[in-house]
């Protein structure tokens, strides 16, 4: 089948890509654009390792078609840090040792960013609820939740 021409914005840069209709956004990012920060853990929406932000909302990129990225604004883990340095969440994850194997980390960081974008001052319960779609098998979530709460504090102080 013919490839589709898709124009989209990824991490602030407008991008043109050719996708097969059956290609997921996750495959498009990883195999087509070599943005391998989003990971595949399940390919059915249950682990959150593939999470990206699309038009301001987190989505599981394994359940979005590459074709659906047309005209969308997408942020991946590769777009979180700036030339000025790491995002406060990234820094907080490092300082709190909130990653062990690290495979879930990009998904958690992206989900956490979207949480703090909409709720800069979340409670522990709110963090746990928001991140429930992201599985981590290594950490028991303790240090992840602390890192997000710390980053929220840090970002408030920085503002």
């Amino acid at each position: 089948m013919a490839k589709l021409h898709v124009e989209t914005t990824i991490n602030g840069e407008s991008t043109e890509i050719l996708v097969d209709p059956q290609q997921s956004l996750l495959e498009t990012l990883r195999d087509g654009l070599m943005l391998t920060g989003a990971k595949e853990g399940c390919n059915d929406g249950n682990c959150g390792a593939c999470t990206v932000i699309m038009d301001g909302r987190t989505v599981n990129s394994c359940l979005v078609l590459g074709a659906e990225a047309q005209d969308a604004d997408i942020t991946t883990i590769e777009g979180l840090a700036t030339p000025r340095g790491l995002h406060p969440l990234q820094q907080a994850f490092l300082e709190n040792a909130a990653l062990q194997c690290g495979i879930c980390t990009p998904g958690f960081l992206i989900s956490s960013k979207s949480l703090l974008d909409s709720n800069p001052n979340p409670s522990e319960e709110e963090v746990r609820f928001w991140l429930a779609g992201n599985l981590c098998r290594c950490t028991g979530y303790d240090k992840i939740v602390r890192a997000v709460l710390d980053a929220a504090k840090e970002m408030k102080a920085g503002n």
């Binding site: 929406g45 959150g48 999470t51 699309m54 909302r57 987190t58 989505v59 599981n60 359940l63 979005v64 989900s111 979207s114 949480l115 928001w130 991140l131 429930a132 779609g133 992201n134």
Partner: peptide, 9 residues
């Protein structure tokens, strides 16, 4: 329904 990622779609 699902988690926050699923609810986005």
């Amino acid at each position: 329904i699902g988690g926050t990622g699923i609810q986005g779609r």
